[in-house]
């Protein structure tokens, strides 16, 4: 694996580990999702350049559009859960507490 590939694979792994572990704030989990999206965007736009296949460069643009959908829905859920639960801490969304 070359260092370029290593850096975005590592960034994706770090972001998904950060999403998997306990977050204090809900928006911190959303930031981890955005970071995962960013570290998928970089290789999606690098691989067409490395392989000289120009028509695949529309894939990162499409992924940018769908990540905008994801960010919008996530922020709406943030607003809704902040209204109903009082704060955006993730431990208020835990199902195990009564």
């Amino acid at each position: 694996m070359s260092p370029f590939h290593f850096s975005f694979y590592t960034a994706f792994t770090l972001s998904s580990l950060g999403l998997a572990f306990h977050r204090t704030h809900f928006i911190s989990a959303l930031l981890c999702l955005e970071s995962m999206m960013l570290s998928m965007f970089i290789p999606l736009s690098l691989w067409p350049i490395e392989n000289l296949t120009p028509s695949f460069t529309l894939v990162p643009i499409l992924m940018l559009a769908f990540s905008a959908c994801e960010a919008g829905t996530g922020l709406a859920m943030l607003v809704a859960s902040t209204r109903t639960h009082g704060s955006d801490h993730l431990h208020t969304l835990n199902l195990l507490q009564c």
């Binding site: 260092p3 370029f4 290593f6 850096s7 975005f8 590592t10 960034a11 994706f12 770090l14 972001s15 580990l17 950060g18 999403l19 572990f21 306990h22 977050r23 204090t24 911190s28 930031l31 981890c32 955005e34 970071s35 570290s39 970089i42």
Partner: peptide
């Protein structure tokens, strides 16, 4: 730049 990219992801992921 690649190493700085990893550091940025680490800064987001470290809660």
């Amino acid at each position: 730049l690649g190493v700085s990219f990893i550091l940025g992801a680490l800064a987001v992921a470290s809660n």
